[in-house]
Simulated scan of single mutants.
Amino acid sequence: PLTGTGVAFSISFSTNGLTFNGQLVGTTSAPQQVQVNNNTSGSVTISNITASATFGITTNTCATPIFANGYCVLGVTFTPTAAGPQTGLLTLTDSTDSGPRTLPLSGTGQDFSISAAPGGSTSATISPGQPATYSLGVSPASGFNQSVTLTCTGAPSESTCSVSPQSVTLDGTNAATVRVAVTTTAASLSVPAQRALPRGSRLPLSVWFTALVLLLALAAMLVRRRRVQVVLAAILVVAVLWGSCGGGGSGVGGGGNRGTPAGNYNLIVTGKSQSLSRTLTLTLKVN
Rank of each mutant, 00 (worst) to 15 (best):
L89F: 07
A116K: 06
V44K: 00
T210Y: 10
L232P: 04
D171I: 04
T96Q: 14
T40N: 15
Q110T: 11
T133A: 10
V223M: 07
N69Y: 12
T96A: 10
S135Y: 11
V148S: 11
Q274K: 06
G137L: 00
F78P: 12
I235Q: 04
Q35C: 00
T160E: 12
L105R: 03
G70C: 02
I11G: 11
V231L: 08
L103N: 15
N48W: 02
Q110I: 14
L241H: 07
A117K: 01
P118G: 01
A239W: 00
G17E: 09
P85W: 04
S106M: 10
G120R: 00
S14K: 01
T173I: 05
T149N: 13
S127A: 15
T185Q: 12
A117F: 01
A233V: 07
R226A: 07
V7N: 10
T279N: 15
F13W: 15
T40M: 11
R199P: 02
S164Q: 13
F20H: 12
T185H: 05
L24K: 13
A211K: 04
V25H: 12
R226Q: 14
V44S: 11
L218M: 12
G271V: 01
A239V: 06
N174F: 05
A239H: 02
V7Q: 10
S188F: 04
G22S: 15
Q194V: 04
R199V: 04
T77Q: 12
Q32P: 01
S162P: 09
S190P: 02
L203M: 14
G129W: 08
A63H: 09
L24T: 13
Q166R: 04
L284C: 08
C62A: 09
A53K: 14
F112R: 03
V237C: 08
C152W: 03
A8S: 08
S273P: 05
I126W: 05
L236M: 03
P131I: 03
F78E: 10
G56P: 04
D97L: 14
V163C: 09
Q23N: 09
G246K: 08
N48S: 15
A155D: 12
P140T: 10
G109A: 01
F13E: 11
V76H: 11
G172I: 00
L89E: 10
T177E: 05
T19Q: 12
Q35T: 00
G243V: 08
T91Q: 14
R195E: 05
T81S: 14
R195W: 02
G249Y: 06
T64C: 01
G26V: 04
S250C: 00
T270L: 04
T160Q: 12
S188E: 09
G42H: 13
T153S: 14
G253Q: 09
T91K: 15
G247F: 01
S162E: 13
G246D: 14
S52F: 11
C72F: 05
I57R: 07
T87P: 07
S275G: 15
A181V: 09
T133W: 10
